[in-house]
Amino acid sequence: MAFLLTRFPKGTAANAGLASCSICGTLSSANEQTCRRCGNQLEFRTKNSVQKTLALVATAIIFYIPANLLPIMTTTLLGNASPATILGGVVIFIEHGSYFIALVIFSASVLIPLAKMAVIIKLCIAVNSSKKLNHRELTSMYRLVEFVGKWSMIDVFVVSILVALVQLSGLMTIQPGIAISAFACVVVLTMVAAHQFDVRLIWDKEGNQ
Protein backbone atom coordinates (compact mmCIF):
# COMPACT_ATOMS: atom_id res chain seq x y z
CA MET A 1 0.00 0.00 0.00
CA ALA A 2 2.73 2.41 -0.90
CA PHE A 3 0.69 5.49 -1.80
CA LEU A 4 1.33 9.16 -1.49
CA LEU A 5 -1.29 9.95 1.16
CA THR A 6 -1.57 13.65 0.35
CA ARG A 7 -3.07 12.89 -3.06
CA PHE A 8 -6.29 12.03 -1.18
CA PRO A 9 -8.56 14.93 -0.11
CA LYS A 10 -8.34 16.20 3.47
CA GLY A 11 -10.75 14.56 5.88
CA THR A 12 -10.73 11.19 4.16
CA ALA A 13 -9.51 8.04 5.85
CA ALA A 14 -6.85 7.50 3.18
CA ASN A 15 -5.47 11.00 3.76
CA ALA A 16 -5.09 10.14 7.45
CA GLY A 17 -3.22 6.95 6.52
CA LEU A 18 -6.17 4.68 7.32
CA ALA A 19 -7.53 2.01 4.99
CA SER A 20 -11.13 0.96 5.47
CA CYS A 21 -11.91 -2.72 4.94
CA SER A 22 -14.25 -3.30 1.99
CA ILE A 23 -16.12 -6.07 3.81
CA CYS A 24 -16.49 -5.07 7.46
CA GLY A 25 -15.54 -1.37 7.32
CA THR A 26 -12.87 -1.50 10.03
CA LEU A 27 -10.15 1.13 9.78
CA SER A 28 -6.56 -0.10 9.81
CA SER A 29 -3.31 1.78 9.54
CA ALA A 30 -1.54 1.82 6.20
CA ASN A 31 1.23 -0.59 7.15
CA GLU A 32 -1.11 -3.50 7.80
CA GLN A 33 -1.72 -6.01 5.01
CA THR A 34 -4.93 -7.68 6.13
CA CYS A 35 -7.93 -6.52 8.16
CA ARG A 36 -7.57 -7.47 11.82
CA ARG A 37 -11.31 -7.92 12.16
CA CYS A 38 -12.27 -10.09 9.18
CA GLY A 39 -8.98 -11.03 7.52
CA ASN A 40 -9.77 -9.32 4.21
CA GLN A 41 -6.94 -7.94 2.01
CA LEU A 42 -6.57 -4.21 2.69
CA GLU A 43 -6.38 -1.54 -0.02
CA PHE A 44 -6.92 2.23 0.02
CA ARG A 45 -8.83 1.96 -3.26
CA THR A 46 -9.84 -1.05 -5.35
CA LYS A 47 -6.76 -1.96 -7.37
CA ASN A 48 -7.03 -1.22 -11.13
CA SER A 49 -10.71 -0.49 -10.57
CA VAL A 50 -11.26 1.38 -13.86
CA GLN A 51 -9.43 -1.20 -15.99
CA LYS A 52 -11.35 -4.11 -14.46
CA THR A 53 -14.66 -2.28 -14.85
CA LEU A 54 -14.02 -1.38 -18.49
CA ALA A 55 -12.90 -4.93 -19.32
CA LEU A 56 -16.10 -6.36 -17.84
CA VAL A 57 -18.30 -3.81 -19.64
CA ALA A 58 -16.55 -4.54 -22.95
CA THR A 59 -17.30 -8.26 -22.47
CA ALA A 60 -20.91 -7.43 -21.61
CA ILE A 61 -21.27 -5.37 -24.81
CA ILE A 62 -20.02 -8.34 -26.87
CA PHE A 63 -22.61 -10.64 -25.23
CA TYR A 64 -25.32 -8.02 -25.73
CA ILE A 65 -25.21 -8.46 -29.53
CA PRO A 66 -26.23 -12.18 -29.67
CA ALA A 67 -28.62 -11.54 -26.77
CA ASN A 68 -30.65 -9.25 -29.02
CA LEU A 69 -30.19 -10.89 -32.44
CA LEU A 70 -30.81 -14.56 -31.56
CA PRO A 71 -34.14 -16.00 -30.41
CA ILE A 72 -34.76 -15.82 -26.66
CA MET A 73 -37.35 -18.61 -26.81
CA THR A 74 -39.23 -20.74 -29.33
CA THR A 75 -42.97 -21.31 -29.00
CA THR A 76 -44.26 -24.48 -30.68
CA LEU A 77 -48.03 -24.36 -31.18
CA LEU A 78 -49.52 -27.53 -32.76
CA GLY A 79 -46.21 -28.35 -34.42
CA ASN A 80 -45.55 -24.83 -35.73
CA ALA A 81 -42.34 -23.46 -34.23
CA SER A 82 -42.02 -19.68 -33.97
CA PRO A 83 -38.81 -18.29 -32.47
CA ALA A 84 -38.97 -14.86 -30.82
CA THR A 85 -36.28 -12.32 -29.99
CA ILE A 86 -36.40 -9.84 -27.09
CA LEU A 87 -37.66 -7.02 -29.32
CA GLY A 88 -40.11 -9.43 -31.00
CA GLY A 89 -41.65 -10.11 -27.59
CA VAL A 90 -42.08 -6.38 -26.96
CA VAL A 91 -43.76 -5.95 -30.38
CA ILE A 92 -46.21 -8.81 -29.59
CA PHE A 93 -47.26 -7.07 -26.37
CA ILE A 94 -47.79 -3.79 -28.22
CA GLU A 95 -49.92 -5.59 -30.85
CA HIS A 96 -52.02 -7.11 -28.07
CA GLY A 97 -52.49 -3.65 -26.58
CA SER A 98 -50.58 -4.40 -23.36
CA TYR A 99 -48.57 -1.21 -23.49
CA PHE A 100 -47.60 -1.24 -19.83
CA ILE A 101 -46.11 -4.76 -19.97
CA ALA A 102 -44.40 -3.87 -23.25
CA LEU A 103 -42.87 -0.89 -21.47
CA VAL A 104 -41.71 -3.02 -18.51
CA ILE A 105 -40.09 -5.61 -20.78
CA PHE A 106 -38.59 -2.96 -23.06
CA SER A 107 -37.08 -1.06 -20.13
CA ALA A 108 -35.84 -4.13 -18.30
CA SER A 109 -34.28 -5.89 -21.29
CA VAL A 110 -33.26 -3.14 -23.71
CA LEU A 111 -33.19 0.30 -22.14
CA ILE A 112 -31.74 -0.52 -18.70
CA PRO A 113 -28.83 -2.75 -19.85
CA LEU A 114 -27.84 -0.16 -22.48
CA ALA A 115 -28.15 2.77 -20.07
CA LYS A 116 -26.26 0.82 -17.42
CA MET A 117 -23.30 0.10 -19.69
CA ALA A 118 -23.27 3.71 -20.93
CA VAL A 119 -23.28 5.09 -17.37
CA ILE A 120 -20.47 2.77 -16.24
CA ILE A 121 -18.33 3.86 -19.21
CA LYS A 122 -19.15 7.52 -18.47
CA LEU A 123 -18.06 7.06 -14.84
CA CYS A 124 -14.77 5.48 -15.94
CA ILE A 125 -14.11 8.39 -18.32
CA ALA A 126 -15.07 11.00 -15.70
CA VAL A 127 -12.63 9.57 -13.15
CA ASN A 128 -9.77 9.94 -15.63
CA SER A 129 -10.74 13.33 -17.08
CA SER A 130 -9.23 16.60 -15.95
CA LYS A 131 -12.54 18.46 -16.15
CA LYS A 132 -14.45 19.59 -13.07
CA LEU A 133 -16.77 16.85 -11.87
CA ASN A 134 -20.26 17.05 -10.46
CA HIS A 135 -19.56 14.61 -7.62
CA ARG A 136 -23.08 14.31 -6.33
CA GLU A 137 -24.59 13.73 -9.76
CA LEU A 138 -22.01 11.09 -10.68
CA THR A 139 -22.48 9.36 -7.32
CA SER A 140 -26.25 9.21 -7.73
CA MET A 141 -25.76 7.81 -11.23
CA TYR A 142 -23.54 5.10 -9.74
CA ARG A 143 -26.10 4.33 -7.03
CA LEU A 144 -28.81 4.01 -9.65
CA VAL A 145 -26.68 1.54 -11.64
CA GLU A 146 -25.98 -0.50 -8.52
CA PHE A 147 -29.65 -0.52 -7.55
CA VAL A 148 -30.97 -1.38 -10.98
CA GLY A 149 -28.40 -4.16 -11.57
CA LYS A 150 -30.32 -7.28 -10.72
CA TRP A 151 -33.66 -6.05 -12.10
CA SER A 152 -32.49 -6.82 -15.63
CA MET A 153 -32.73 -10.49 -14.72
CA ILE A 154 -36.55 -10.21 -15.07
CA ASP A 155 -36.42 -11.40 -18.67
CA VAL A 156 -34.37 -14.48 -17.79
CA PHE A 157 -36.88 -15.38 -15.06
CA VAL A 158 -39.83 -14.83 -17.42
CA VAL A 159 -38.35 -17.31 -19.88
CA SER A 160 -37.51 -19.84 -17.15
CA ILE A 161 -41.10 -19.74 -15.82
CA LEU A 162 -42.64 -19.98 -19.29
CA VAL A 163 -40.37 -22.89 -20.21
CA ALA A 164 -41.22 -24.69 -16.97
CA LEU A 165 -44.96 -24.08 -17.20
CA VAL A 166 -45.75 -24.46 -20.89
CA GLN A 167 -44.84 -28.07 -21.62
CA LEU A 168 -48.06 -29.53 -23.01
CA SER A 169 -46.70 -32.09 -25.45
CA GLY A 170 -48.55 -31.98 -28.79
CA LEU A 171 -50.50 -28.84 -27.97
CA MET A 172 -48.03 -26.16 -26.99
CA THR A 173 -44.43 -26.12 -25.78
CA ILE A 174 -41.88 -23.37 -25.15
CA GLN A 175 -38.15 -24.00 -25.51
CA PRO A 176 -35.43 -21.63 -24.31
CA GLY A 177 -33.24 -19.97 -26.96
CA ILE A 178 -29.49 -19.39 -26.82
CA ALA A 179 -30.00 -15.61 -26.44
CA ILE A 180 -31.26 -16.12 -22.90
CA SER A 181 -27.82 -17.43 -21.84
CA ALA A 182 -26.14 -14.47 -23.52
CA PHE A 183 -28.55 -12.09 -21.81
CA ALA A 184 -27.91 -13.64 -18.39
CA CYS A 185 -24.18 -13.13 -19.06
CA VAL A 186 -24.79 -9.44 -19.84
CA VAL A 187 -26.66 -8.96 -16.57
CA VAL A 188 -24.10 -10.78 -14.42
CA LEU A 189 -21.14 -9.04 -16.12
CA THR A 190 -22.62 -5.55 -15.70
CA MET A 191 -23.40 -6.30 -12.06
CA VAL A 192 -19.80 -7.35 -11.42
CA ALA A 193 -18.55 -4.34 -13.41
CA ALA A 194 -20.58 -1.91 -11.28
CA HIS A 195 -19.30 -3.64 -8.16
CA GLN A 196 -15.69 -3.35 -9.31
CA PHE A 197 -15.99 0.39 -9.85
CA ASP A 198 -14.70 2.24 -6.80
CA VAL A 199 -16.95 5.31 -6.24
CA ARG A 200 -14.39 6.82 -3.91
CA LEU A 201 -12.30 7.62 -7.01
CA ILE A 202 -14.92 10.26 -7.94
CA TRP A 203 -14.61 11.94 -4.54
CA ASP A 204 -10.84 11.69 -4.53
CA LYS A 205 -10.75 14.27 -7.31
CA GLU A 206 -12.49 16.87 -5.14
CA GLY A 207 -9.31 18.06 -3.48
CA ASN A 208 -7.36 18.42 -6.72
CA GLN A 209 -9.63 20.95 -8.38
Partner: peptide
Protein backbone atom coordinates in the same frame (compact mmCIF):
# COMPACT_ATOMS: atom_id res chain seq x y z
CA UNK B 1 -26.12 -8.62 -4.05
CA UNK B 2 -26.99 -11.96 -5.67
CA UNK B 3 -30.25 -12.69 -3.86
CA UNK B 4 -33.00 -12.05 -6.40
CA UNK B 5 -36.26 -13.30 -4.91
CA UNK B 6 -38.16 -10.05 -5.53
CA UNK B 7 -36.88 -9.82 -9.12
CA UNK B 8 -38.01 -13.40 -9.70
CA UNK B 9 -41.51 -12.53 -8.49
CA UNK B 10 -41.80 -9.64 -10.95
CA UNK B 11 -40.60 -12.05 -13.66
CA UNK B 12 -43.32 -14.52 -12.64
CA UNK B 13 -45.96 -11.79 -12.84
CA UNK B 14 -44.85 -10.79 -16.35
CA UNK B 15 -44.88 -14.45 -17.42
CA UNK B 16 -48.38 -14.85 -16.01
CA UNK B 17 -49.64 -11.86 -17.96
CA UNK B 18 -48.23 -13.52 -21.08
CA UNK B 19 -50.05 -16.74 -20.17
Amino acid sequence: PWAMSEVFLVGVLVALIKM
